[in-house]
């Protein structure tokens, strides 16, 4: 490692800001800084396969395309159709419902588990590593596993009594999706809260203990305010994520029963890759992007998250 820096460094550093030295003095150039082309591989990959598609999807929303040949411009037709489409309205409603339900269930659970897991006891570390396991499963594996577990004839669901046919009713299917998403992602958010809770200065608790504060007072008046930034980060990830739980819907309920669990990305997929209306599907995708961006921006705006440089700020 480069730890053996000698005392020269300070003086040398001071002269670094001077104009470029002569070309034949490789020992004392201006501070070596990477050229912009160091960004090139990342910029190319990200640009071509993430940023450009984002632009292209808007363009495609003004076209008609069946997946072969060239997309043909058709003006605003898709958008006119979209705004008169009752089904898209319903699907948006389901998407928002799912988002709210996910936030309402995951945030308290993750907070509680995260703050608990932040404690130094050894059993907490062991339990946290077990809690973490669902996060390792692919959504595909997890959705198919739960579909089998919720099988009303042979699965675990047979132990659930009246709830055994959970995936057979609209409300039940939505509840199942919310539950399975929580099962997978609560550990992730728990991890965020655990890391943040460990960073809360211990002196705050010591002072509160001296003042005779109760545990719940400490939680509401120290822990929670100190976790503010993490709550915002976690909520942003959660909300934007909830808009896009396509895989779990596809594999767990396939949108059913009926269209009860259709959410926007699923509707987009069906419109595109099943009905081959790629232009119309792109319009739905555009709505999704706008929705996700708006939500993130609103959260960022009202939280000052953009100004934050590190989680340690304000300590």
């Amino acid at each position: 490692m480069v730890a053996g820096v000698d005392t020269r460094t300070g003086e040398e550093a001071a002269s670094d800001e001077s104009p470029r030295p002569g070309p034949r003095e490789p020992a004392r150039p201006a501070v070596s800084r990477p050229r912009s082309w160091y960004l090139l591989p990342a910029a190319l990959l990200f640009g071509l396969f993430a940023a450009f598609p984002l632009v292209l999807v808007v363009f495609l929303s003004f076209t008609e395309w069946e997946g072969i040949g060239d997309p043909a411009l058709i003006g605003l037709d898709n958008w006119v159709r979209l705004f008169g489409d009752q089904r898209v309205l319903d699907v948006t409603g389901t998407t928002l419902l799912l988002t709210v339900l996910c936030w309402v269930t995951q945030t308290p659970a993750a907070l509680l588990l995260g703050v608990w897991a932040a404690g130094p006891q050894r059993n907490r570390a062991i339990l946290s590593s077990i809690f973490f396991l669902p996060l390792l499963l692919s959504t595909a594996a997890l959705a198919l596993m739960w579909q089998r577990l919720l099988d009303p004839y042979f699965g675990l669901a047979t132990e659930l009594g009246p709830l055994r046919n959970l995936l057979g009713t609209g409300t039940g299917a939505i509840a199942a999706i919310v539950f399975v998403i929580g099962w997978q992602y609560i550990p992730f958010h728990m991890l965020l809260y655990q890391a943040a809770a460990r960073n809360v200065p211990k002196v705050l608790y010591d002072a509160a203990t001296l003042d005779g504060a109760s545990r719940s007072q400490m939680f509401w008046q120290i822990t929670l305010p100190q976790l503010r930034n993490t709550i915002i980060t976690s909520s942003t990830i959660m909300v934007v994520g909830s808009l896009t739980h396509f895989e779990i819907v596809l594999l767990l309920t396939n949108g059913g029963p009926g269209t009860a669990t259709y959410i926007l990305p699923f509707e987009m997929y069906i419109r595109g890759f099943r009905a081959l209306e790629f232009g119309y599907a792109s319009a739905i995708a555009t709505v999704l992007v706008v929705l996700a961006t708006t939500v993130s921006l609103v959260i960022v705006k009202f939280s000052g998250f953009a100004k934050m440089r590190s989680t340690l700020e304000g300590m």
Binding site: A50, A51, F52, P53, L54, L56, V57, L60, T236, V240, L243, T244, F246, P265, M268, Y269, G272, F278, A281, S282, A285, T286, L288, V289, A292, T293, S296
Partner: peptide, 10 residues
């Protein structure tokens, strides 16, 4: 913040 799902068609 880009949802990958929204870009699958392009």
């Amino acid at each position: 913040a880009i949802p990958a799902q929204a870009t699958i068609i392009p």
